[in-house]
Design a protein around this nucleic acid. Structure first.
Lengths: 113, 113
DNA sequence: TCAATATTTCACCGATATTTGAAATATGGA
DNA sequence: TCCATATTTCAAATATCGGTGAAATATTGA
């Protein structure tokens, strides 16, 4: 993944509402959620949400599809993984401290799940 | 790590020059590099660099120490790891796609190193 | 077709972020 | 002390971002 796309993704995630959107959508996988349901879940206006969804979609972190009169948004987990992978590749290289933290996170997560 | 700190870190990294600073400093570990040397390496003005360094330091991603008339900046690898860990914890949970990507990255990195 | 629902687009405004260059501060050495 | 080096601070200009509400678009069902 090129740095310019990583930057776009980081910018997209670096906003309270948008990070919440990602957190909401990732567990739902490809099923995703309609824009209106996302707006309700997060307590934001429809037009405001639409703006944030478009940012995330432009960054490649979300996909959208129409279903009847709804627009369903879903997290693109591969893209999210690629961003994290870039950070690990760039930052983790030769640095045990960073890998250690992510390893702990992974183990904690798997133990808890 | 609380979400507000993660947001601050993501905002700090979501900038071309600042991501370059991180990429430059991480491999150098605790030795770090003087502000002037960073500015030269990246081809940016001293005052511009100072602004970006302060953003990264405020986010907790860099540490600084004075050495004679220099100010040495170093990446805080634990903090970087914590940000990545947060993303994995939040986003990777129950999602094999994301973990798969980071696993590949890890293996590629370790094979290449 | 008409009305209701779902979402996006638009224009406007205020808040933030970034760049620039000059000036201020701090340090070390002659 | 005086000068050169290293860095930060400041103010001004510009650019970008985010929030708001009205209007536009698309879809469905009566």
């Amino acid at each position: 993944m090129e740095q310019s796309r990583v930057l776009k993704s980081l910018s997209a995630m670096a906003h309270d509402t948008r990070l919440e959107i990602v957190r909401l959508l990732v567990p739902l996988g490809k099923d995703g959620l309609a824009a209106g349901a996302i707006a309700e879940a997060l307590g934001v206006s429809a037009s405001g949400l639409s703006f944030h969804l478009s940012q995330l979609e432009a960054a490649g972190l979300l996909t959208s599809r129409k279903a009847s009169r709804h627009v369903i948004y879903a997290a693109d987990c591969k893209a999210l993984g690629a961003v994290i992978a870039y950070l690990l590749n760039d930052c983790c290289a030769r640095d045990p401290d960073i890998c250690a933290c992510t390893d702990e996170a992974r183990q904690t997560e798997q133990a808890g799940a």
